[in-house]
Simulated scan of single mutants.
Amino acid sequence: MKRNLLAIAIPALLVAAGANASIEVWNKDGNKVDFYGRVKAANNITDRGQVGEGDDTSARLGMSGQTQITDSVTGYGRWEYEAKAGKNSDNEVRYAFAGLNFGDAGSFDYGRNDGVLKAITAYTDVLPQFGGDASNNDWNVLSARTKAVATYRNNNFFGLTDDLSFALQYADNGDNSNGFREDAIRGESREAWGANVQWNIFDTGLTAGAGYAQTSGSDNRQSTWAGGLKYDNYNLYLAANYFQSKFKDVLSYGPTHRGTYKTADGKVRGFELVAQYGIDLEVGRITPSLAYVQHKVKADGVNFVEDNIRYHNSGFSSPVTKYVSLGATYDLNKNFSAIVEYKFNLLDRKDYGAAKNTANSRGEGTKPGTKDVLGVGLIYQF
């Protein structure tokens, strides 16, 4: 019976666990509570004002818990808060959700949680300091943390195999923003839904995953699909993912003097590659890391109506993100790490991403963000 309860509880804790270590503060009568936290003291060094430059120090504190309800049902919850101590000093509730785990029947939870596509884009979100470009942006639907999401997960395909898992998700006006229209800046949000599936290919260490998500409605609709592969075995980690987001009527130029308007459809395509290898030392473990990231935005064309005549102009294509990353993580033990990462910025001055990468995020009155960045830091976690 106890092994049965563990089989039910462990998947919930895997969803809830966000740190490499935690402190168990309560474990009695089927109730368990863990606390975890992290302090990262880091700095991004470059010779030109760019987004994310300078102090990147932050602290996180989280709690995960579970309670046995019946022999086959377990309740669980997670809360995590982050306070940034850098120049922006922004604070954020990263996670706040609760749910029920029904064993082989799967689990259901609701609250602020990862978007369903992050399970795929996170394959390459493992760099020492940078990375996460496909996971944490406004281009992709349900690929970052978002509010008001209801998620169903099944980690063993109804008890038939531990190698196959899937998830379904609905966002009730979650943070599903359109990068062109700057919905995130205006605080707007929309309904969305999505799904993913992952296959652990037998005992090879290879995992394949794919997912799809889209916002609701016919106007300004946005959709994203993503696919990825990762290999984690014998101290070697290799990962790759590819995504594509489509936007309908994403650029709106407003009415002209003749009462007409202009709109454009767009796409963002990107791929990310990561290779890491862990080396055990006499004291701790060092993991060198190499990555290549490239995302490109493309407007299929600009359509505008004037005097009831529809015109079509050619669009544009430009990189949003393009860099090579070389770095390493030195884990002195499970609680303390040192990180270093050098980002070779491959953006040109005229690229769309160079303008977005400037300190004011628009590229107005500043030089294009095309400079390399060195990130260094120390991390304590429990």
Rank of each mutant, 00 (worst) to 15 (best):
H312E: 09
F166G: 07
S64D: 07
F102K: 12
R186D: 07
E182M: 10
N196R: 12
F157M: 14
G353C: 08
G353R: 03
A210I: 10
Y292F: 14
V197K: 03
R112P: 10
L117K: 07
G115K: 02
Y323F: 12
R349N: 13
G131E: 06
G254V: 13
Y76L: 15
G369C: 04
S135A: 11
T124I: 08
F102I: 05
G194R: 09
A59V: 09
K367I: 00
D348M: 02
L100G: 02
G365N: 10
V274L: 14
A354N: 12
L229A: 10
D351Q: 14
R186M: 05
G179V: 09
N176H: 09
V340P: 06
E80C: 01
S318G: 06
A359W: 04
P368C: 04
D125P: 11
T366L: 15
N113D: 13
F382K: 11
N333S: 10
V324I: 15
K248F: 03
D372K: 06
E364Q: 10
A264Q: 04
Y152H: 05
N20F: 05
Y76T: 03
K248L: 04
N345F: 08
D348Q: 14
Y323M: 07
T287R: 11
K32Q: 14
D29I: 03
L100E: 02
E53M: 13
N113M: 06
I120S: 01
R145N: 11
L160H: 15
L13V: 05
